[in-house]
Amino acid sequence: MHDLQTITALGGATPRVDVFNHITITENDGVALASVAARLGREAACRKVLKKLLGAVPETGRAVLHDPEAGFCMGPDQWMLGAPRVSHELIADQLKTLFGDNASVTEQSGAWVCFDITGAAMRDMCERLCAVPIRQMVAGDVRRTVIHQLGCFVIRRTADDHVRIFGPRASAATLHHALMTAAASIA
């Protein structure tokens, strides 16, 4: 076993939590990610594996919030799958074994920062951040959009006051600043 320690996207040894009146912003360091793209002509086979793994295939604009592996649709015949990092550190290898030649699998764990936004003012906060129609979105709805000029995924989670944002990891500090400003603004 190696002795290299990870740091979080915000640079800490442990994830950061910021609590406001009606909003809590939590850096979520526990998600391992990999993208899965169906090979040409193998789309049906790829979907079959997805269905077996998640219970359903995430359709356009949707996530399947399954446990332990979950996934959402990124684009035509392309998905992002996630799972707890503690059990799925090698998620790309694990998925490649499952999908074989039916899909291209690429590790994405390091590419994204994940923030969980929870609280009564979650919708108000989203309205200050991006153009997603947050009030119309239901659990499992996913949108790729722009927050503070950064391409992000916005996922409505199961709890009514919970939205998850995946943003580019290198810009985690910028994204966090935008979240903090918006939270203060609506507090």
Binding site: M74, G75, P76, Q78, R144, T145, V146, G151
Partner: peptide, 8 residues
């Protein structure tokens, strides 16, 4: 190009 979207 849907750069900030699905890359289509």
């Amino acid at each position: 190009f849907h750069e900030a979207g699905d890359r289509s």
